[in-house]
Nucleic acid binder design. Structure first.
Lengths: 268, 268
DNA sequence: TAGTGGTCTAGACCACGGG
DNA sequence: CCGTGGTCTAGACCACTAG
């Protein structure tokens, strides 16, 4: 199956960097990559080169263990890496198979947004509004409170490197006893925003991402052409009693929040 | 960052309580959940109930192993479950800590889209256009071919349960030798569409998700009010020589493709 | 230096799938 | 039934962090 036939693909001439483990021989000396990573790399290379094709069964765990002189648990750990990369699929009782490159199982993460909102040196938070209001419409529904109940409302304009970056709104039920009220109303930092610095913490949260067209006001604030598309990222956080205790959203022009995902073998 | 230092590790789990699903005691009889899942559940419950709070260090691996009478590898497997759920974070040399519920590491997957496009019984693919054209503009760039080079172009309208669901376009360099050309041009099934049934397979792919406003034609085809927002899902697939060999996109009204993500403890 | 997680072994048995 | 992956053990040593 995965015999090293020493036949080098002609288009393999170019790559100058050869990851450890790609040689096909496991090194156990100090300083080398963990054995399981090396083994994962060997299998990954076989997939990348086409030696193992979509649907093929990769060598069994015991075969891999024997061939590379490692234990079964180590083989398992190696294969787990590939499973998590989406390259292979385990089928109990049958084998482990190379998956097709298809978009079905792809996921998009918020790393770029995360990175920017972590870069506090270049962030400036401008408070547009910050007070206690009587709740209307959707926000009350989301928070599970009655119409006209008081809520804390904070609207922020987030600047990144001196440029308007995103709009944000946060709602939470007003509780005069809560010690966080003042913090919330004066939240020019990132507290309770993208990162949850709520001292009591939340038990769980739910996020929803959808496309919106910015209105005049939003476009002006973000200094972007009107009718420009953007992402809206809505969130609800729940406390340990499963009660909604924070609702809010971000509006981010999509240029500021690229959603990209990769599948298949990208790192050989 | 308020730590509750009064919390003593000794009472982080009370073996007496028996919540539905998992007691605080590991069962090893046949038919019960795997030990590592039971242990994961025990720790998860401690987080859900607030006994373990954000930032707290969970008991060390050896402590867990001793307390529950299991081996270190089993403890590791249990904790790995929670790491993958995003509930805890391992820090080498320091400990394993309960993560805050925050949106930073969230990811959105395409499960709902995947599910619908797998439900072939209720899908109908209508070919809007299917021919070989000389490539113009962006599509040529994406495929890395010259202007005016021939490409296969297929445009499809996807119906789900008799309703227009999504628009799709697929481009690939025209290669008269390739045996898939006819298949592509007559692709009223899902071959080469969301699921990659390309016999040769691809090595890797890249996806991009962004918000678009549908134009008149698109709105009409999808029978949706004009200027309605939608998601555009673009893809490029590469062959084993790292050459782009398939470019295309889906346009899906966002109601048809909810992007929802959950964080924290949802399953106790 | 003490204590933590990270890797690894050489076994064992169980659970599932297909011939 | 056999071969597969799935779980589990009781050790061992390594790598990192912090006091």
């Amino acid at each position: 199956m995965v015999e090293n036939t020493r036949t080098i693909n002609t288009d393999w001439v170019s790559p100058r960097q050869k990851p450890a483990g790609a040689s096909g021989v496991i090194e156990k000396r100090k300083g080398s990559l963990p054995v399981y990573m090396q083994l994962a790399q060997i299998i990954r290379s076989s997939i990348a080169s086409g030696k193992l094709k979509s649907g093929d069964r990769i060598p069994t765990a015991s075969k891999l263990a024997e061939e590379h002189g490692v234990s079964l648990m180590t083989v398992r750990q190696a294969v787990t890496v590939l499973v998590e990369e989406g390259l292979v699929k385990r089928v109990h009782g049958s084998g482990t198979f190379v998956r097709k490159v298809e978009m079905g199982k792809t996921s998009f993460h918020l790393d770029s947004l995360n990175q920017i909102l972590s870069d506090t040196d270049h962030l400036k938070i401008q408070i547009l509004k910050s007070d206690v209001e009587r709740v209307q419409g959707i926000e009350g529904e989301m928070l599970g409170i009655k119409l006209e109940d008081p809520v804390i409302l904070v609207e922020r304009l987030i600047h990144y490197q001196k440029e308007p970056f995103a709009l944000q709104a946060a709602y939470m039920p007003f509780d005069p006893i809560s010690p966080v009220v003042e913090d919330m109303l004066d939240a020019t930092g990132l507290s309770g925003l993208f990162f949850n610095e709520n001292p009591s913490g939340y038990k769980k949260g739910s996020l929803r991402l959808w496309p919106v067209i910015m209105d005049q006001v939003e476009s002006d604030l973000l200094m972007i052409a009107e009718d420009k598309q953007a992402f809206k990222l809505e969130y609800i956080y729940y406390n340990f009693k499963d009660k909604p205790c924070a609702y809010g959203w971000f509006i981010v022009p999509h240029e500021n929040m690229p959603l990209i995902s990769q599948i298949g073998v990208w790192n050989e």
